[in-house]
């Protein structure tokens, strides 16, 4: 199972658990895609909120460079010293609670 599939499965599980009436599989897949973008944005936001200033400055500086790409961006974040995994997990748990209305 690839990484996107893991995230997609996570979301599909949520949709199934939510058990909204009248959803076709096709519509569920559409919702899952939308939710996936939303979820990634929330994770990004959570990460950006705790990034140290110097890392933020570095990202801003590098973003203006022609050779800057996604891999470098993620490496800078990974090397920043913040616990990306914890933040991600925390966000997923919060997202889950929010979506299922258990919070």
């Amino acid at each position: 199972m690839n990484d996107d599939a893991s995230l997609n499965n996570f979301i599909m599980d949520l949709i199934n658990e939510k058990n909204l009436p009248g959803l076709t599989d096709e519509r569920k897949a559409e919702i899952a895609n939308e939710m996936q973008d939303l979820l990634i944005e929330q994770i990004n936001r959570a990460i950006v909120d705790v990034l140290p200033d110097e890392v933020l400055d570095k990202l801003n500086e590098r973003m203006g460079q022609p050779d800057f790409d996604e891999a470098e961006m993620q490496k800078i974040v990974a090397d920043s010293g913040i616990d990306v995994e914890k933040i991600t997990a925390d966000t997923l748990v919060r997202f889950r609670a929010f979506y299922l209305g258990t919070e």
Binding site: F10, N44, M63, Q74, V84
Partner: peptide
């Protein structure tokens, strides 16, 4: 911060690596 988020959005990717998100999603599930 908003600029970094915009940039990440343009890449259509997460600031965390896909692997990290995938692993954690699996674990949370």
């Amino acid at each position: 911060r908003a600029k970094v988020l915009t940039c990440a959005g343009k890449f259509g990717a997460g600031l965390a690596t896909g692997l990290a998100i995938g692993v954690i999603a699996q674990e949370v599930s």
